[in-house]
Amino acid sequence: MLKILKYSFYDLMRSRWSYVYFLFYLVLGFVLLFLNNDVSKAVITLMNIIIVLVPLIGTIFGVMYYYNSKEFTELLLAQPIKRSSIFLGQYFGVAGSLTLSLVLGLGIPFVLYGLFKSDVIFNFTLLLITGAFLTLIFTVLAFIIAISNENKIKGFGYAVLTWLFLAVIYDGLFLMSLIIFEEYPLDSLSLGAILFNPIDLARTLILLKLDISALLGYTGAVFKQFFGTNLGLFISMGVLILWTVLPIGWLTFKAKHKDF
C-alpha cells in the first residue's frame, strides 16, 4: 500500500494541478494578509473560503484522479496486490498531496507575517486541521462516487451534486425545518443536524473559537453547554474523525466487492 501511496503522491506532486492549488493558496494567503495586515482578521476571512473551496476541490480532484488513473488501476489489479491497498494507496496519495498544498500554501504566508508572535496560532492550527479533515472527507466521498459509477459524466455530476448538497442545499433544508418547527424546542435538533454534515461541522468547529460572542448570546442551556465548554470542541472533533473513518471503510468495502 505504501508503495502505491508513494507512487500516487509523487505522481501528483509532479502534476501541474498540485502546483496550481498550492500557488492559489499561497497567493490567497499573501493577498489576505496584505489587505488586512491583521492575522486574526485574515483567519476569519480564510474560514469562509476554506469551508467552501476545500470540499469542492477535494471532490473534483478525487473524481478526476480516479477516472484518469483508471487504466493504471486496472493494470495494478492484475498484479498480486490486495485491492484495499491499491485504492487506499491512491486515495491517501491524492488526499495527502491536497492537504500538503493546503497546509504549505496557507502556512507559509502566515508564518512570514508573524503567526508565531500572534495569539491566533491556535485558531489558525484549528483552521488547517479542519481544512485537512475536509480534504480527507470529500476526497473519499469522491472516490466512492467514482468507484460506483463507470460513466465519467455521471460520476462528475454526482460528485458536484454531493458538494452542492452539503455546502448549500443541506443548510437550506435545515433552515426550513427549523422555521417550520419553530414552536418546538429545537436546540438538540439543530445541534444534531450539524453533526450530519461535515461542512457544517467544520464551520461550527471554527466558529466555536471565533464568533463565540454572537453564538453564546442566544437560546437555551443546551447551546450554552455545547458552545460554552470544551464539550462542543471534543464532540465536533470526534464526529469529524468518524466522518473520515467511516467513508474510508466504505471505500474499502466497495473496492473489494467491485467487479472490474
Binding site: L175, L178, L186, L189, R203, L207, D211, L215
Partner: peptide, 20 residues
C-alpha cells in the same frame, strides 16, 4: 431577521447558504 424569529438558526452563522 431569521435569527430574531427562530433563535436556533444562529448555528447557520457564516454558512454559504446564508450568504447567498
Amino acid at each position: 431577521y431569521i435569527v430574531n424569529r427562530t433563535p436556533e438558526t444562529i448555528v447557520l452563522l457564516r454558512s454559504l447558504f446564508m450568504d447567498i
